[in-house]
Structure formats: C-alpha cells, structure tokens
C-alpha cells in the first residue's frame, strides 16, 4: 500500500491509498469508458444526472 500523504515529517497517522469505494462497479466503469469515446454512435445515460419528478396526476 502507498501513503497518500507526502511531507517532510511523519504524520501521526498514515493514510493508505485504497480503491475508491464504488469506483469500479460495472456502471461506473461503463460510464468512464463511454465518456472517452462519446460521439458518433456511442451515447449513454449517466444515471446520476437524471432528474425526474413523478407527475402525481398523469
């Protein structure tokens, strides 16, 4: 493991670089890869961006 703190003294506690929680789930991986190639025939829905309010009287 690697410390994320770098300095000229030893901090009281060390903090190690860990995988970011939820960073590697399938949806996140898909969105990351899709974003790199966005355009042409590639498009995707970033689920976190959706704002939807259900109409109470459809």
């Amino acid at each position: 493991m690697t410390s994320v703190l770098k300095g000229n003294f030893q901090a009281a506690k060390s903090v190690e670089a860990k995988d970011k929680p939820e960073a590697d789930d399938l949806d996140s991986r898909f969105e990351r890869e899709a974003m790199k190639k966005l355009g042409g025939s590639i498009a995707y829905v970033a689920k976190k961006k959706i704002k939807w309010a259900e109409d109470e009287n459809p």
């Binding site: 994320v4 703190l5 770098k6 300095g7 000229n8 003294f9 901090a11 903090v15 670089a17």
Partner: peptide, 10 residues
C-alpha cells in the same frame, strides 16, 4: 512541517 494530499492525483 509540511504534508501534501494531492486529491486531484489520487
């Protein structure tokens, strides 16, 4: 006494 946390890098 200096420490850096490079949040952008990590």
């Amino acid at each position: 006494l200096v420490q850096v946390y490079d949040a952008n890098a990590w």
